[in-house]
């Protein structure tokens, strides 16, 4: 874990409120694993006060790439930061998706939930069979398709709710068929809470290892503030930042 003074090397708008950032952060880049996240100080002032959590899209030391959606104050400030700007960046934080060499794994990404799974695919697609199920509301939410095409994925399944890209409908509609035909041994998911809750229901009866990366309001990102609590199936709270963000899907009490 490093509190690094990084530098923005490139910022690119990918249309409709999605941005790609290339950040010089050698210590973090060296240690980052798929599933880890960082906390960014989006402004050098105390407004907004808290850092913002973001997944790591890929890491090629000395750089990491972030991919974010503009939501509110923090991400609006972040999109306007320029190449050359200093960026305080804390990471890598949290746990990672497990490495399951030799296994056939289905990656399930909803919208910006692609971030940690992109990283996973980037690192491991060449050595093991990976499938990707990727969905969003429309083509605007599925901006990384070209980069994903360049990866040696076994198969890609694309869904959009408005039908503007891939099959029409929520990605959960494709799940049953893919699992039946491809027989993956594990699934790894990241996306909106409703999507993860639906997956938890659908995957419960299947004998797979299922993992999900969660989001939560984060005050610190390194386990001290207790703001990121999520209720687990055992009735106790877990800290998303320190116990996660990746959890066995069954460990969480759905819906959150």
């Amino acid at each position: 874990m490093h509190d690094e003074s990084g530098r923005i090397e490139e910022t690119r708008c990918l249309g409709e409120n999605y941005y790609l950032l290339k950040v010089f952060a050698p210590q973090i880049a060296r240690e980052a694993k798929p599933g880890n996240f960082v906390m960014l100080r989006v402004s050098p002032t105390w407004e907004p006060l808290l850092r913002r959590p973001f997944g790591i899209l890929q890491s090629q030391p000395p750089h990491i790439w972030l991919y974010f959606q503009v939501k509110g104050r923090g991400t609006t400030l972040l999109k306007d930061r320029q190449a050359g700007d200093r960026l305080d960046i804390l990471g890598p934080l949290g746990n990672a998706f497990p490495e399951l060499p030799d296994q056939k794994i289905l990656l399930i990404a909803g919208g910006r939930g692609i971030v940690p799974l992109f990283h996973y695919a980037k690192n491991y697609a060449a050595r093991q069979p990976l499938l990707l199920l990727y969905g969003g509301r429309g083509a605007a939410d599925l901006k990384l398709l070209a980069e994903l095409d360049a990866m040696p994925l076994l198969e890609k399944y694309i869904f959009s709710e408005d039908g503007s890209c891939g099959e029409k409908g929520p990605l959960t509609e494709g799940l049953e068929k893919i699992v039946r035909e491809q027989r993956p041994q594990a699934t790894m998911a990241c996306g909106p809470e409703a999507m993860l809750a639906a997956l938890a229901g659908m995957l419960r009866a299947k004998k797979l290892d299922n993992y999900a990366s969660l989001e939560a309001v984060m005050g610190c990102g390194f386990g001290v503030c207790h703001s990121c609590a999520v209720a687990a199936a055992d009735g106790r709270y877990r800290k998303v930042c320190a116990d996660g963000p990746v959890f066995p899907l069954e460990e969480i009490q759905w819906p959150i």
């Binding site: 407004e47 309001v217 207790h226 703001s227 609590a229």
Partner: peptide, 21 residues
């Protein structure tokens, strides 16, 4: 501790209801 949400950001401030978890 208290049920989430436990934090809410305000201008240059922070409201917390952690409940001493």
């Amino acid at each position: 501790g208290n049920p989430p949400p436990r934090l809410f950001e305000t201008p240059a401030g922070l409201l917390n209801s952690i409940g001493l978890a």
